[in-house]
Nucleic acid binder design. Structure first.
Length: 270
DNA sequence: CTCTTAACCTGGACGC
DNA sequence: TGCGTCCAGGTTAAGA
């Protein structure tokens, strides 16, 4: 269930259990994820101390002196810290065994996720060309306005383009456009500066709020079944096609935009 | 460049 | 109960 707030919640949940710990060994059960897990993960990671856990876009980086493990959770991935004798479940592909008798376990049923390697002082190609972080200052309405001029793709596809801004997936793009009153079908280049200012504000607000809500589940991070479903009841448009618009009561439309299901109000969103 | 489409993979929900 | 179909929170790669 990973969009940016879920990845950030994972990072914050792992931090106290993993940062500063040494990795004793690496156990790969399946290496054929989105891309093959490279040799460096097995060859270089054992013995290394995890100095920090960073997030860039929806990627997590476990930093060590030898290099960084670069993780993406894809559509269905999750990371948990567990006692090393915890029974395996289906799709438990990787364990990083820590010195304290626990394991950082990577589970991913669909295997759209990845575990790659970034050498010290280098930037992995997947991280090059990413847009700004939505919660940082470089992301605002003026930025979106400037980037969007001349672009004919629907504003929803533009907003979900990781080269434009990272971390905004299908749920939060749908929600932010609803809250900003912008039709997801409108050409990105035809949205005004003022409306992009509103959109940037909504993106920041909804992501920050979702991260804050995710935080309430952090203390359960060690339990084997702590998937946070925190945000579902607060969604106004996502998954509500055909239901009444929370603002005007007319039925929400639902259609596929850029291959992703989108719900919106044709009356409130222009 | 920009835009659109197909593809990767498994599991759950639903209809018959 | 079993089986076919559709759908899912992401992203890259290929083609127009």
């Amino acid at each position: 269930m990973p969009e940016l707030p879920e990845v950030e919640t994972t990072r914050r949940g792992l931090l106290p259990h993993v940062a500063g710990r040494r990795i004793e060994h690496v156990r790969l059960r399946r290496a054929d994820l989105r891309w093959p897990i490279p040799r460096q993960v097995e060859d270089l990671l054992p013995g290394q101390r995890i100095d920090a856990i960073r997030r860039r876009a929806k990627y997590l980086l476990l930093d060590t002196a030898a290099g960084s493990a670069l993780l993406h959770l894809g559509m269905s991935g999750s990371l948990r810290v567990l006692p090393s004798d915890t029974p395996l479940r289906a799709h438990d592909h990787v364990d990083l065994a820590l010195e304290d008798g626990r394991v950082l376990r990577f589970n991913d049923p669909r295997r759209f996720g990845c575990l790659l390697w970034q050498a010290p002082g280098t930037l992995h190609p997947l991280l090059a060309g990413l847009g700004p972080e939505p919660l940082e200052d470089g992301f605002d309405g003026d930025y979106l306005f400037a980037r969007s001029r001349g672009r004919s793709a629907p504003v929803k596809a533009f907003l979900m383009d990781q080269a434009v801004v990272v971390g905004v997936g299908n749920i939060y793009a749908t929600e932010a456009l609803f809250r900003a009153g912008i039709s997801p079908l409108r050409a990105a280049g035809k949205v005004s500066r003022e409306r992009y200012a509103a959109l940037a504000r909504e993106v920041k607000a909804i992501l920050a709020h979702a991260i804050a809500r995710g935080g309430t589940t952090l203390r359960d991070f060690l339990s084997p079944d702590g998937a946070p479903g925190y945000f579902e009841q607060e969604l106004l448009a996502y998954g509500r096609g055909g239901q009444p618009c929370p603002r005007c009561g007319r039925a929400l439309k639902q259609a596929s935009i850029g291959q992703r299901t989108t719900a919106w109000c044709a009356h409130c969103q222009r």
